[in-house]
């Protein structure tokens, strides 16, 4: 039986797949990025629709419920993504600093 939260997850996944396609069509990223994100949404959809297929992981990971397992994995994933984005932002910030100063000093 599909639960309410699974419907929400499925709709979210469809919506994100649509956005991924839309921004790819607008040329915001390359085909490789589009492919990576589509794989991510496909895995997400599978997890949402067939959560019980991960039941065998509960015992070896010492987690009592599937919901707890997904929450923990999501939290780890989000932390990883935040760190990665922080790194990219800092690198871009340094690049902007250099560009703005170079232009200011060379365009007197």
């Amino acid at each position: 039986m599909i639960l309410g939260i699974q419907i929400v997850g499925f709709v979210f996944s469809l919506f994100m797949s649509y956005l991924t396609f839309l921004y790819y069509r607008r040329g915001d990223y390359r085909f490789r990025d589009f492919g990576v994100w589509m794989v991510i949404w496909t895995i997400f959809t599978y997890v949402v629709l067939a959560p019980n297929s991960f039941g065998e992981l509960l015992k070896p990971l010492k987690v009592s419920r599937l919901m707890d397992l997904f929450t923990i994995i999501s939290f780890i994933a989000v932390l990883g993504i935040v760190f990665y984005l922080y790194l990219i932002t800092r690198r871009n910030e340094d690049k902007i600093n250099r560009i703005v100063r170079e232009i200011a000093l060379n365009r007197e």
């Binding site: 902007i96 600093n97 703005v100 100063r101 232009i103 200011a104 000093l105 365009r107 007197e108």
Partner: peptide, 22 residues
């Protein structure tokens, strides 16, 4: 005597540093 322009707003500290470097 010398006019420098940041193409985007960077903040007072950054602007002052650009001026001092010059």
């Amino acid at each position: 005597d010398i006019f420098l322009k940041h193409i985007v707003n960077m903040g007072k500290g950054f602007a002052l540093q650009t001026g001092v470097e010059r």
